[in-house]
Amino acid sequence: MSPAPQPGEVFPDLDLPDHTGRERRLSELAGGDPVVLLFSRGWWCPKEQRHLREVVRLQDEFEVAYTRIVVVSTDEPEVQAAFRAGLGARFVFLSDAQRRWLPRLELLEETDTLHHPYRPTAFTLMPDLTVSRRWDGYWYWGRPTMEDLRQEMRAISRAVRPAFER
């Protein structure tokens, strides 16, 4: 079992450079909203490209729904910036190119001895970074569908927005 948090545990407040090289913290990126946190192999992986294209389609709903998306990979910031632009993403990519957090989270994909990337893993987080759900996405079908993420954002919003049901 990976020490990456399980549902009910608080996710570490990651401190990493974003796709522009600016240092960010996960709590600042959450900004009091529910978060989808995606650990991704990197720009070169066809599975990541496919899944993130789906997530980018979902951002049109997130942009009006007070919910955030954060992607973490071991790509360098300038690579992430190009990948992000190519995808048309309007959310933050965090770069763990120095592998500062990867060993602490024990999310290394051990079957890729070339890139030493993150093992694809998805989390939904409450605004205080408490994990709501986790998906292990080594196998593509283990990842959350966009409908899974919609349902999670609805459930978390219902839990944290007192006026959700008037």
Partner: peptide, 25 residues
């Protein structure tokens, strides 16, 4: 100021975007 995280483009509690937070969060 840290730049906005995105992808939210809506205003928070009437504050000029990208500032503010929802009062219940």
């Amino acid at each position: 100021v840290p730049p906005p995280a995105g992808p939210v483009i809506e205003r928070y509690a009437g504050v000029a975007w990208p500032g503010g937070t929802l009062p219940d969060s």
